[in-house]
Computed example of a mutant assay.
Amino acid sequence: MIKHRLRPVFRLGIRVLVIAILAGGIQIATSTAASADPTASTWLKLRTCESSNRYGINTGNGYYGAYQFDLPTWRSVGGTGRPDQASPAEQDYRALYLYRMRGWQPWECAGMLALRSDGDARSKRIPTYAESAYIGGNGTPASGKPAWPGVVYAYGDCAPSLKTFQLRMNAFGYAFDGTGCYYDKTKQAVLDLQRANAINDSGRLGPKTWDAAWNGQPPR
């Protein structure tokens, strides 16, 4: 995180990055500056370089997690505990928070990758969890949640809107395939979300739980 020395994990990330480049999977530089926050693909490039995209990494060198926070930097943006022990969604949120405070400056890899700052860099605007939720996925910064479909879903239901909900929950580390069917894994995600947001933990996906998936506290 701090630009003093090349860390072992940094060198590992560079090797992975080179392999990805040879395979045609990752571009070294962004083509244009983003109009809002950096895109999900830009964050992926950063994580790949910093940590080989491993959220739980702790090599014992004083830098932790996907974004290789040191503890003072992590705490400066409100993080608690150790970064590598935080959920992917929490690490993504703190990374966006840091970016809005200091731009790309804290990350060695940002310079190596020639990442460009945009309008939110150093804006000092504290993000919401809804604003950072796109980072771990493949989308672009979200402008808002999709409208509630008007149906309260329960165990055994299948619907396109359930697929939308499942894919949204992937931002919090659930790894849904997006089947659109409400079974055990979906029910657990609903319960986790309800408990994190003080919603009656009925296990049914209603309007309050739907809204919390985009605008509430992360479930874990």
Rank of each mutant, 00 (worst) to 15 (best):
L6W: 11
R7Y: 05
V9E: 03
F10W: 15
R15A: 15
V16W: 04
V18E: 14
I19M: 08
A20S: 14
I21N: 06
A23T: 03
Q27C: 11
A29S: 12
S31I: 08
T42W: 13
L46K: 03
T48E: 00
T48F: 00
S52L: 07
S52T: 01
G56M: 14
I57M: 13
N58F: 11
N58S: 11
N58C: 07
N58A: 12
G60F: 11
N61F: 07
Y64S: 12
Y67A: 06
Q68G: 09
F69P: 01
L71A: 14
T73E: 04
G79T: 04
G79C: 10
P88L: 08
A89I: 14
Q91W: 05
D92P: 00
R94S: 04
A95V: 03
A95L: 10
L96V: 07
L98V: 14
G103C: 08
Q105P: 03
P106E: 09
W107K: 09
C109L: 05
A110D: 02
A110I: 02
M112G: 10
M112R: 13
R116M: 13
D120S: 13
K124A: 11
I126P: 00
T128K: 12
T128S: 15
Y129L: 03
A130E: 00
E131T: 04
E131S: 08
S132K: 04
Y134N: 02
I135A: 07
I135R: 06
N138Q: 11
N138I: 00
T140C: 04
P141M: 15
A142T: 06
G150E: 10
D157S: 11
K163M: 08
F165P: 02
Q166V: 01
F172S: 05
Y174G: 08
A175Q: 13
F176E: 03
G178K: 03
T179P: 04
G180L: 08
G180N: 05
K185D: 03
D192F: 06
L193W: 01
L193Y: 02
Q194K: 12
A198D: 05
I199R: 12
N200E: 12
D201E: 10
G203S: 08
G203Y: 05
G203M: 06
T209V: 09
D211Q: 10
A212L: 07
Q217E: 05
